[in-house]
């Protein structure tokens, strides 16, 4: 039972970070960013390239890779999203889809279609005993890092002007600008935070498989969708809650589903998502605004 709790907390933490990164941009720009998974991929290749071809110590490889994801997120905002921001939501969606395809295929073209092994410090996978359970250190690190990040982000959002401005912008974007808050500033910061979270996610995600490939971002993107739908698209707290709920759901389904239908787990998850959206489009935690519904 303790093992189940630690596994679920660790998986839930990872999912919470994944969801949070997606919602940060959605909250401000109302953009479901399909390129989000590729920021995770970017950091993954950062780990691979810096870890393999430079003599840098592992901790600086990790920090640089996280920074690389943030940079990539910022660059996509600057080059692709900013010019289409005043156009329709569909135009932004198609742009994010195109950015996703572009980054994936750039990795295919310039690095390799095959997956690359990533060197992580051995301590990462070492087993430790806690509460009578032996678990990889990685799991505990995931939980610890998530808690630290959530505390940090909460402080940022609550006690800094920038945080207040970002909360205001996700509530009423136009009015926030009337306060003198530059639109580009809040949007860029949202993308940078989203990228940072993607980078941190990448360290732990890649840590699980110890390899990176061009399609590595797809599964986290799906996870982000499911978790944010469960938690509610509009609230950061909801995204975190959704991540943990999904982590729990995933582990429960993995244990309880018979082996013959385990391959359908993703389909099950998405059926749940669809039902959730139809029955409760605002998610578990209601944001300050409800999604527009037609009909």
């Amino acid at each position: 039972m303790n093992e189940f709790i630690i596994n679920t907390l660790s998986l839930g933490s990872l999912y919470a970070l994944i969801a949070l990164g997606l919602v940060f941009v959605y909250g401000i720009l109302k953009l479901v960013n399909f390129a989000y998974g590729e920021y995770i991929m970017t950091a993954g290749y950062g780990l691979f390239l810096l870890g393999t071809y430079t003599p840098l110590p592992w901790w600086s490889v990790m920090l640089l890779s996280v920074a690389l994801a943030a940079l990539m997120s910022y660059l996509t905002e600057l080059i692709a999203f900013r010019p289409v921001r005043t156009k329709s939501l569909t135009a932004m969606l198609v742009t994010s889809f195109a950015v996703s395809v572009l980054l994936q295929n750039a990795a295919l073209l310039f690095i390799s279609p095959r997956s690359r092994a990533v060197q992580l410090p051995a301590a990462f996978n070492q087993s430790v005993a806690l509460l009578g359970v032996t678990t990889p250190l990685r799991n505990l690190l995931t939980i610890g890092t998530t808690v630290a990040l959530l505390v940090g982000l909460t402080l940022l959002m609550k006690y800094t002007v920038l945080g207040i401005a970002m909360r205001a912008a996700s509530d009423k974007f136009s009015t926030t600008r009337l306060m003198g808050v530059p639109a580009n500033l809040v949007i860029s910061v949202a993308f940078i935070i989203s990228g940072l979270l993607a980078g941190v996610v990448s360290v732990f995600w890649v840590g699980r498989s110890a390899s990176v490939d061009p399609l590595i971002g797809f599964t986290p993107l799906l996870i982000a969708f499911i978790a944010t739908v469960i938690g509610g698209m509009r609230s950061l707290v909801g995204a975190v809650a959704g991540g943990y709920v999904y982590g729990l759901l995933f582990n429960v389904l993995s244990i309880t589903l018979p082996a013959s239908v385990i391959n359908y787990r993703d389909a099950f998850m998405f059926l749940i998502v669809i039902l959730f959206l139809l029955l409760r489009p605002e998610g578990l935690i209601r944001g300050s605004y409800t999604e527009e519904r037609v009909g």
């Binding site: 002007v161 207040i164 401005a165 909360r167 205001a168 509530d171 009423k172 009015t175 926030t176 306060m179 808050v181 300050s288």
Partner: peptide, 12 residues
């Protein structure tokens, strides 16, 4: 801003 406190509204 309904979700922000009076203090935060004024700060903005």
């Amino acid at each position: 801003f309904g979700s922000l406190t009076v203090a935060e509204n004024l700060r903005l």
